[in-house]
Amino acid sequence: MTFEVLKPGLLTTLQDAGRPGFAHLGVGRSGAFDMPALRIANALCGNPSDACALEITLLGPTLRFHAEAWIAVTGAPLSVRIDDTDVPAWAPLRVRAGAVVALGAIAHGCRSYLAVRGGFDVEPVLGSRSTDLNAGIGPFGGRPLRAGDTLPIRATEDARPARPANWRADPRPWFDADPARPLRLLPGSHLDQLTDTSHKQLFSKSFKMQTDSNRVGLRLSGPVLEWSTPIEMVSEGCVPGLLQLPPSGQPIALGPECPVSGGYPRIGQIAAVDIPRLAQLRPGDALRFTRCTFDDAFAALQEREHALRQLETHIAARLAP
């Protein structure tokens, strides 16, 4: 069971839940930027929640399936066509052998996910099938998909949805590209060392995502933020969502391919519950920040995890023969 990449799209990579356990050797996690979208795509295919799927950026790929398959598309909205017929995202879809699946351009948001029943049968690298473009680690030597690539699909006994897809999951709680809703920001190590003006601007002004952003980091432009005293620090551990302030005074929000350590001062940490919204920002999008405490951020994350597990259970029940 395989499919062939006819057109790769703008930047399409294999991603799973990431590569934990190697930070001490300088290896970052990588993994899907919008994890709930990946998990729901997997749920709609009856896969384990951390199975490997395609992460699609801004423009989707065109794929020819060499065998019958069961797929699902989630994340940012985009057109999904199977042999020139429009089909819904956020639903289990049956693909006939020989069919061409064409994903269109993402209208708003930035990243969509295509999962396939059984998952992709590629060798894990350091325990994960995630692509780390920056470090060059993962399937296909850590590069994005190219036209002509053949992706093996792990065979399963039931390669087609047990029931026709006359229903779909509701994307609304899981895809939110509303720029009016600020991202929740936890206080960073050096937040209190911003000048009073910069501190106010961080939580009142709008920032814009720059075009030279990627899975390593999102460069933001806005008011130039300044320190009240110069900060000297030695390199220390970094995680996705960390908001760093380089000497330019323009913040960088780290993404899933961020290095494991870095020496820029830290002004904040985007709450985990809002990382999927960070993942869905596209160049030119505006964003704002609002203060959040660790207790509130954790409570919100718990609530989301609970809702996600409920949805996964609900989808599994609907897929059951």
Binding site: P20, G21, F22, A23, H24, V234, S235, E236, G237, C238, V239, V260, S261, A272, F298, L301
Partner: peptide, 15 residues
Amino acid sequence: DIAPAYASLLLRFDP
């Protein structure tokens, strides 16, 4: 993950 840096140690955990 338990990752040493020069003067600090990063711990990552499943919340």
